[in-house]
Design a protein around this nucleic acid. Structure first.
Lengths: 136, 136
DNA sequence: ATAATTGCAAATGCTTTGCTTGTGA
DNA sequence: TCACAAGCAAAGCATTTGCAATTAT
């Protein structure tokens, strides 16, 4: 019954309030990458009294403890997704905003290589592809 | 005497005011990637009456006509650089904010390939590496 | 001449925060 | 019980904009 996110909260000492449980549940069910407004809309359907400040605080907290991932794609407000074990990057449809996740090991390796060559240890990276659907 | 940016303005029908000339000159001389505040500081040394609103407007205009490039690196305000003919990506020093530009054709090709495989035509992309200097 | 640009301050949009009341462990 | 969380409204921060005065062509 309790979601994966809820378990992670318990593990990581995050106090479980009704609001957090609800936000966790909505995040778990979301397959897209909602922004805070959208998240607030979704949780409001269940609890109409929940404040958007709480959504902001919760999403930030969840990010800090590694439960969700935050993305600042071009020209938009921050969007969130449940943190997954496997790293992946994103392709954003420039027409619809739709997001496709992908993994490419070759690119990952090349990034490491580039950083090293420049004298850096790679601690993070951001790779976003922006594209428009090819009609077939 | 007139900078490269000034010539581009003339070519592209951008009216040349003293403020724009000054901002163009400062951008041309900058080898780093200054944000609007920093740009405003630099131009203010020459013209103390220039408004930050003008810097915002100018930088936006220059971007629209392809004279400068805007970057929204993680967690910071927008930073700008003079648009260069050759595409490049950025490695950001997480400790100092220092930026190193790089080009990697293999990564570029792989990005095209990934997009294509997912059914998209690649129209834009963003690749940023975040690293910390390796002491030797 | 006159349409575009500036400077200023007010407005914006997203996000954070102070404070008082409510609540999970 | 009592430190922490929620709700609300106010504050912050980067950026944009309305308007009257100024300027480039």
């Amino acid at each position: 019954m309790s979601s994966d996110i809820e378990n992670k909260c318990i593990e990581r000492g995050v106090r479980l309030t009704d609001q957090r449980k609800l936000i966790a549940q909505v995040m778990s069910q979301s397959t897209d990458h909602p922004d805070v407004d959208e998240l607030h809309k979704r949780v409001s359907k269940v609890d109409s009294k929940i404040s958007i400040a709480t959504v902001y605080r919760t999403v930030k907290l969840f990010e800090e403890v590694g439960i969700v991932a935050k993305h600042d794609f071009k020209g938009n407000k921050a969007r969130y997704e449940e943190a997954s074990q496997e790293h992946h990057d994103h392709l954003i449809d420039v027409n619809t905003g739709e997001i496709t996740e992908f993994v490419n090991e070759d690119i990952e390796k090349l990034q490491q290589k580039v950083a090293k060559k420049l004298g850096y240890e790679l601690v993070d990276h951001r790779l976003e592809l922006y594209g428009s659907k090819i009609k077939k």
